[in-house]
């Protein structure tokens, strides 16, 4: 069983740069053909202040942590046993190419279902930009398959 004493534990804060090349690659990978997500002129013509970070890409930037496995290592979870259960984003301010975003993750909850056959880890992450403005809150529920 995952040790519930880790509920409330903070993971190391880190920063990640939003790069145009990464967003182009991401647009290709998800079949995004809206020019707003790859072309600055198109983005500005559509009323954005730059190329916007697409809605789910904050989750990808969260993988830029110096040790992306920090949470699994802290909780002693095997990567082959994890499934993504839920993901939520609350958006407070837009983020654009050129921004430097800071991620502050913490363990919000740990619980079990089906007599421990499934365990759930809830990570909540606050994202701020280089001006200290809150950009978003992320909530990720990981499911661990036991047995």
């Amino acid at each position: 069983m995952i040790d519930t004493r880790f509920i409330g534990a903070a993971l190391p804060e880190f920063s990640a740069d939003v790069e145009a090349g990464r967003l182009r690659f991401f647009a290709k990978a998800i079949g995004q053909d809206d020019a707003v997500y790859v072309d600055e002129a198109a983005a500005r013509a559509a009323g954005f202040d730059g190329i916007p970070v697409p809605p789910t890409f904050l989750f990808c930037l969260e993988m830029e942590a110096p040790n992306p496995a920090a949470l699994r290592e802290m909780l002693n979870i095997d990567i082959g046993r994890v499934l993504h259960g839920e993901q939520q984003f609350i958006y407070h301010a837009p983020a654009y190419v050129g921004d430097r975003l800071t991620f502050s993750p913490k363990v919000a909850d740990i619980y079990a279902k089906k007599g421990g056959a499934l365990e759930f880890v809830v990570r909540e992450t606050r994202v701020t930009n280089q001006r200290g403005e809150q950009v978003a809150e992320l909530r990720c529920v990981t499911v661990v398959r036991n047995g």
Binding site: D34, V36, A46, G47, F48, P52, P54, P55, T56, L83, H84, G85, E86, Q87, Q88, F89, I90, Y91, P94, R139
Partner: peptide, 15 residues
């Protein structure tokens, strides 16, 4: 595709 992204306030899913 339906509304500009700057109108998106919350987005969540269950897998």
């Amino acid at each position: 595709n339906w509304v500009p992204q700057h109108q998106l306030r919350e987005y969540g899913v269950r897998f």
